[in-house]
């Protein structure tokens, strides 16, 4: 059955657009879409319009920051109807191995072809801090489980999958800015050994550290085994830059980003809120474009993952400004 599936997909693992873009040597661009905190479709339709044709595939977050939202798979189906290619995010926080596998069978049947395997933010950050978390398996084990389902036709327990194996292009995250720094490339190596196909990194606001991380990744030869998409995102205001620098666990933001955001509004009086907002947004987009241009030249980087959360309008000007538009059309 696995062989037949492979033939159907012309040798691709999943046949997703993202897989084709990367395997054909294009510099990939992915985006992000946060599902609504409710059951209305409008938000997904609106965000989909802003991202359609601008990126190769779109992450659909899974209860991001542990706040309840429409499910990633359901939102992914809706986004797909709007012409996007979803990357379903799946965290180990909310589901055990039974629930994850059941959802993956369903996601595959519904046409999902990309999956991002994540540990998940701790529930204490979200809107249900008294919830029980699961963490039956971790993200590395999740990668292996999905790969075994796809390539070996087996469930995690070892039983054969009799009625069609789910075919995902398997992704995972890597955070070059978390500690212990020396361990990070090896943790990435573990995910590679587990069978991951692509990696998206945490938001990069410290390019020298990312450069050092990538050097170690290249020294380990990992860039030849996995496609690494560098995480970038436009900063919306000086306050947002400070917040990420000072408050968000696992992030490093160089002072330069805060300083530039401050400088962008230095000549605009505080009461001119609209003008300040526009100046910040223009500077945020400009910095993001510069980041992409710099990161693109780093050895081992196969693409960028643009996280413009609740600011999807920014993605098109960034992709255009970075010279990555139009996106390649795959057969």
């Amino acid at each position: 059955m696995a062989e037949a599936a492979k033939e159907q997909s012309n040798g691709y693992k999943s046949g997703s657009n993202l897989e084709k873009v990367l395997t054909n040597g294009y510099f990939a661009v992915t985006g992000e879409l946060g599902p609504p905190q409710g059951s209305d479709l409008e938000e997904i339709l609106h965000k989909s319009q802003l991202l359609r044709g601008v990126v190769d595939a779109v992450n659909i977050t899974d209860n991001q920051t542990a706040v309840v939202r429409m499910s990633s798979i359901a939102s992914g189906v809706l986004a797909m109807r709007e012409g996007l290619e979803p990357i379903v995010q799946m965290t180990c926080r909310d589901r055990n191995r039974l629930a994850i596998q059941a959802d993956l069978l369903g996601a595959s049947a519904l046409g999902m072809r990309n999956l991002l395997c994540l540990t998940g933010d701790h529930q204490s950050f979200g809107n249900h801090p008294t919830a029980k978390n699961v963490h039956d398996i971790d993200s590395v084990q999740l990668v292996r489980m999905v790969k075994d389902m796809r390539d070996d036709n087996i469930f995690q327990c070892g039983d054969p999958i009799k009625f069609g194996n789910p075919r995902f292009f398997i992704g995972a995250a890597s955070n070059p800015f978390a500690d212990p720094f020396e361990y990070r490339p090896y943790r990435l190596a573990k995910k590679v050994a587990a069978g991951v196909d692509f990696i998206q990194t945490q938001l990069i606001y410290d390019i020298p550290r990312f450069r050092e991380f990538m050097k170690r990744v290249v020294d380990l030869g990992l860039h030849k085994k996995v496609y690494i998409l560098a995480g970038v995102g436009p900063i919306k205001s000086a306050g947002a830059a400070r917040y990420m620098r000072d408050k968000v666990p696992g992030m490093i933001v160089q002072d330069m980003y805060v300083d530039r955001m401050n400088a962008a509004v230095a000549d605009i009086p505080k009461e001119e809120k609209k003008a300040r907002r526009e100046a910040w947004q223009a500077e945020g987009i400009k910095m993001c474009i510069e980041q992409i241009q710099e990161i693109k030249e780093i050895e081992g980087v196969a693409g960028v993952h643009i996280m413009a959360i609740e600011w999807e309008e920014a993605v098109k000007p960034i992709v255009e400004g970075a010279g990555l538009f139009p996106r390649p059309t795959m057969e």
Binding site: T119, H122, D138, A178, P180, G250
Partner: peptide, 14 residues
Amino acid sequence: SKQLLNGPCGGSQR
């Protein structure tokens, strides 16, 4: 906090 068996999550810092 997440009972991980394969190394630290992305939230470990300092």
